[in-house]
Design a binder for these strands. Sequence first.
DNA 1: TTATCGATACAGAATTATATGTATTGGTGC
DNA 2: GCACCAATACATATAATTCTGTATCGATAA
Lengths: 212, 212
Amino acid sequence: MPEPIRILLVDDHPLMLMGIRSMLEAKLGIEVAGTASDGFQALSKASELRPDVMMLDVVMPGMDGIELARRMRAEMPDVALLVLSSDTSIATLETLLGIGIDGFLPKTSDEATMLSAIRSVAAGYEFFGTDIARLIERISLAKKASDSMFTPRELDVIRLSCRGLQYKEIAGELGIKYLTVVTIKNNIFRKLGINNTVELVLYAIKKQLISL
Amino acid sequence: MPEPIRILLVDDHPLMLMGIRSMLEAKLGIEVAGTASDGFQALSKASELRPDVMMLDVVMPGMDGIELARRMRAEMPDVALLVLSSDTSIATLETLLGIGIDGFLPKTSDEATMLSAIRSVAAGYEFFGTDIARLIERISLAKKASDSMFTPRELDVIRLSCRGLQYKEIAGELGIKYLTVVTIKNNIFRKLGINNTVELVLYAIKKQLISL
DNA sequence: TTATCGATACAGAATTATATGTATTGGTGC
DNA sequence: GCACCAATACATATAATTCTGTATCGATAA
């Protein structure tokens, strides 16, 4: 019989910890090595216990799951990171992928999915459910589409416009003439079929071209 | 020995259900009568089982916790509603209070808090943790402050402006002269110390005067 | 009663934004 | 090389916005 997969659970919800624990308890080949309820605790427990897999929540008080994942990758890259989250937003997923997590599980996943995710990442494979994979695909497509929809200069002007800067101020900021800003903004309006800056702001927020 | 408190658990996360169940299992005087993973299932199980308390999540696919709470209040007002959520946003809390739930628990609550919450609502009392009570207080204060900061007409103009409407359009919508809209908007700008509509939009979003 | 203040309403001038047209540059495919 | 297109740049004309000032009404306090 092979060594069991040793897991460190990180979640600020005691109920989630209990739920995962009771789900994994009876499973052969898997052992819950420990639990932590915030990022700092997780780091110290990880260096102490050296688990094979860290299952971590994203939303946590203090150091959140994103910062935790970043540090784990830097300090203990041999621990597989399986992110467990109910937040499947664009920004979060992209950030996590950038950090290089090994897998992502929605909290709504059933038992079988969770087990196979754990086994996958412990074995060195990635695990992203089909819906997540599809979401990633859709996100990157949408991002490319809206990126290629605007030239770099246009994106500059969009971002500054959406922070409340006026034509003259944008020109000064970018080191171009006022009239050039006029052209660029007109092009943006034409592309989007809108005709004032407020609508541009609303568009940019919806498409996450700017952050609030 | 008195009758046990019978609870119906509603959450779309299998792990949460398992966690709560394993927490309550050994407790004297409490019995998990059943579980449901969405609103519709919850309604049918509730009418079948007639529990004393329904513990329900807010975020769920299909019928969410808010709609579920509304229907439960209308159809089975004798079932105490204890909302369990990680979302403690302004809007959600206000809506839930308006529906008349009996208690609210953050998912981060510890075991002791959950037990006393269950016992409180089962006994006919309300349960809102001190932090939630404080949040409600703060919210209503902030709301009053920002409400009284603007006259009704100003709020009309703010909302329409933030949807991209121009002065003429706003005038038409409100049935007043273009020049009156000018004055109202100027007053808004002066009050906020800003000088264009984009900054107004950003302000309104931050203060939740408008919803995206 | 009168004085005052805030909300609402309107006007003219000054500023800014938007629509439309044109020129230059650099890259791409023929 | 040449035609073509996209990106950048600038200009003029028109429209919308913002600034400053004024007037009326109703409530409220001296």
